[in-house]
Design a protein around this nucleic acid. Structure first.
Lengths: 212, 212
DNA sequence: CACACATTGTGGACGCCATCCACATTAGGG
DNA sequence: CCCTAATGTGGATGGCGTCCACAATGTGTG
């Protein structure tokens, strides 16, 4: 007999959509996308299962919202990483450091919040959703847009030729995303930080070198 | 009242484990890992749901078996791609072509059988399972081992220094795997073959160039 | 050759989940 | 102040994974 269920005094909750989103995100953080379960989310919020249907069409809609929130978190982590870059001196070095920061932040997020990272990519996206404001960080840019911006910077700084620019985001993204998933899900799971940092560094070198 | 259910004459099935594995693989091919459902697999085989438990500890065990089968398919596709490489002339060119074939086969599999590809990486693996014979192709090597072999070839041919060799499989794998998932699950979903081939080619160039 | 026993398949039940319909409660606008 | 639309509740349905008891069958032993 749990006295726990956070009973409301009011019949209305007042902010149920956000509360469910938060609960769902917490579930995702704990157990990945499979753990985002409607009934459990409503339970945690202290509301009947059906109440969720007033705010989300179905479980998948909730999962999509959680996914967007996770992407937004990822964007913020990348932004934080980019904020540590000193923007003085050789412009081409700065541009390269800003690109590198995208990868570093991406990989840091994957390793710090593996389940949330998995959730961020659990629902198939497309070109549209990859630029949806819901998935943006503090700068208003999504992870993909932050990457694109960094690559534009490379061109401006003359590090990358305009000819090689189109589609370069997908090459860089592929490499970083691939390593992230191998570290989180794949055979590299549970690799210790010194080794992971080495691999990450070498991968970013490969991009830096191979993109040109 | 479906007259369909393939009734057996014998009480014993005879090869239920394999039949379930085949049914599960078919489900995966149609709908990815989530579609690998015990009850549906038993239904297709014409057996009671519980019968599955004589051969698999639980649903997850079946999924793991399907996953291994999918990895094995992937290995075969890579092998097929490598078989098209003419092994004459400049040894370094051959070595590089053999590495390229790994990537090409990998990406071809992902695009040809997207759901099966997703399933192949649905269950978290580790260093051990990545070399399990269950995941091997006709040569007895798993996808990861085929890649390692190709990289060893690069060193032998003098294309890659021994110093850069250790861990190189994870760099190359990251890039290819990342692109594959972006094409299957991510924002590149539904990209048309001419464009995907272009991207794939450029990615493999990036690896070829950036690994050294 | 018969019979006990381990193996393999069946039937039925339980609890969890997503989802639907009908109903209850409440906030706000006419 | 009351009517209506929005929001939360209760109860039901059907699917799923899994467990237990039981039935059918293959097999090795005396």
């Amino acid at each position: 007999m749990p006295a726990n269920p956070p009973k409301r005094s009011t019949y209305r909750h007042g902010d149920l959509r956000n509360a469910l989103l938060a609960a769902g995100t917490e579930l995702a953080r704990e157990g990945g996308p499979e753990a985002v379960v409607l009934r459990e989310a409503t339970r945690r919020v202290g509301v009947a299962p059906n109440a969720a249907y007033r705010h989300f069409a179905d479980r998948d809609a909730l999962l999509r919202a959680v996914c967007s929130a996770a992407q937004s978190r990822l964007a913020v982590v990348i932004e934080e990483e980019q904020d540590t870059v000193v923007r003085e001196g050789d412009p081409s070095a700065v541009a390269r450091a800003l690109l590198r920061a995208v990868g570093t932040g991406y990989l840091r997020f994957a390793q710090t919040e593996p389940e949330l990272f998995r959730t961020a990519f659990a629902v198939p996206s497309d070109q549209e959703s990859a630029t949806s404001p819901e998935r943006a960080g503090n700068t208003g840019l999504t992870p993909l847009q932050l990457l694109s911006q960094a690559l534009d910077g490379l061109v401006e700084a003359g590090v990358l030729t305009a000819e090689r620019r189109p589609g370069a985001e997908f090459l860089a993204w592929s490499a970083v995303h691939g390593l992230a998933t191998l570290l989180v899900d794949g055979p590299l799971r549970g690799l210790a930080p010194p080794k992971t940092d080495d691999l990450s560094g070498r991968l970013l070198d490969m991009i830096d070198h191979g993109l040109r």
